[in-house]
Write a protein that binds this DNA or RNA. Structure first.
Length: 378
DNA sequence: TTTTCCCGCCAGAAG
DNA sequence: CTTCTGGCGGGAAAA
């Protein structure tokens, strides 16, 4: 007990905090990054990697992760060495639209020879580029260097999004996504690495509120559900831009290009990495999800799964409190940032822990409440 | 335990 | 050469 106290007594000002993994997550970093630049004049404000890294207190390596993913969404664009241009969150809907279009286009034609033809033509040649192919017309999409190792995080991130936008499934298990996305789906090591990466992008997308992590009641593995861009970040702040209406479902997930091919028989041959069409990814994914669902639904008939556990600090009347709480989210947010900014520097470990505990409990309650709210909205 | 996923090594690419 | 990028996977925190 006393030994800990002495530890907390650190002379390092800011944060006695013992190591906490989640405070350093990419998601948090992304939020901070956005908080730092959102509001800047889009298109002209430039982001310096070193500057950002310093201001956010992280190593430069991490900036690459965040920036690459954000770039795949159009929020920033690489300008030069160490320099990115802030494009703004307003860029997101446009970019998603484009990704969806690209994804659908890749569906049937393979875009082999024809460079930027708008009309789809049926001809499948061996070499088909995945996205951001040559087409200079492709203004706002990412402009990756040609074949910069098609394993890039940015590409993975875009393909991950396409999975949602171009298929009718809206709940995806990362394991399945890894298998469905381009690349070797048979090699266990490769898959594990890909899943690691997917966790990375999922974290930043979560902080953008583009997707949401959901838990399939019990026994179910965690999965992600597409939310689409609603103009709000994870912490409830509105985009600087405007206050769009509720919007039932941002992008139609009603594409019915089902084309169930049942190409279950995945031979060892497989397709060259990144040369896979969305349709294959789609079908593959659908298969995987079905497989999963069949197994799942066996024992869990049709559970509402809205079981939120409020933990030990559950408010007495959650339901009653919920509405009120939501009206005050904004204010609460201020409290939150205040609390984290002026976190008491308790020299007594017990007190410190208690405070932390309260914060945790309160945060999860707030989070859960928010989730329910958004669920009701759409 | 398994799942999540941060950290930072180090191999190219750029300058 | 130095500096910048960013795959990659070990292994430890979280569940």
């Amino acid at each position: 007990m006393s030994s800990l106290v002495s530890l907390v007594y650190g002379e390092s000002e800011t944060r006695p905090q013992f190591y906490s993994r989640k405070e350093k997550s990419l998601g948090v970093l992304c939020s901070n990054f956005l908080g730092l630049y959102n509001g800047d004049c889009a298109g002209t404000s430039t982001v310096g990697l070193d500057d950002a890294a310093n201001r956010l207190g992280v190593e430069r390596r991490r900036m690459y992760d965040v920036v690459n993913i954000l770039e795949s969404i159009g929020v920033v664009a690489r300008k030069a060495k160490n320099q990115y241009t802030w494009k703004g969150l307003e860029e997101i809907p446009r970019c998603l639209e484009q990704l969806k279009k690209d994804g659908l286009k890749e569906n049937f034609n393979s875009a082999g020879s024809c460079s930027s033809a708008r009309v789809s033509n049926e001809n499948q040649c061996g070499g088909l580029l995945s996205l951001n192919t040559g087409g200079e017309a492709n203004h706002l999409a990412s402009l990756r260097k040609n074949n910069k190792s098609d394993k890039s995080l940015a590409l993975l991130s875009q393909n991950f999004i396409k999975l949602f936008l171009c298929s009718n499934v809206d709940m995806i298990l990362l394991d399945n996504a890894a298998k469905a996305l381009p690349g070797d789906a048979d090699d266990e090591t490769t898959l594990r690495t890909k899943v690691r990466r997917l966790y990375d992008v999922a974290n930043v997308f979560s902080s953008l509120n583009l997707i949401e992590k959901i838990r399939h009641s019990e026994s179910g593995k965690p999965a992600y559900r597409w939310l689409g861009w609603k103009g709000k970040l994870k912490n409830g702040f509105d985009t600087a831009s405007e206050i769009n209406e509720p919007k039932k479902r941002v992008f139609g997930s009603d594409i019915t290009n089902y084309n169930s091919k049942r190409n279950k028989t995945n031979s060892v041959v497989g397709w060259k990495s990144s040369k896979e069409t969305s349709v294959r990814m789609h079908n593959k994914l659908v298969d995987l999800e079905h497989e999963y669902d069949e197994n799942e639904l066996k024992q869990h008939p049709r559970h509402k799964s809205t079981g939120i556990d409020f933990g030990p600090f559950a408010p007495v009347s959650v339901l009653k409190a919920r509405d009120a709480a939501f009206k005050n989210v904004k204010q609460v947010q201020d409290m939150e940032s205040l609390a984290s900014t002026y976190r008491p520097q308790y020299h007594n470990q017990a007190l410190y822990d208690l405070f932390a505990h309260y914060m945790e409990a309160w945060k999860s309650w707030l989070e859960a409440t928010r989730k329910q709210q958004t669920q009701q909205i759409c």
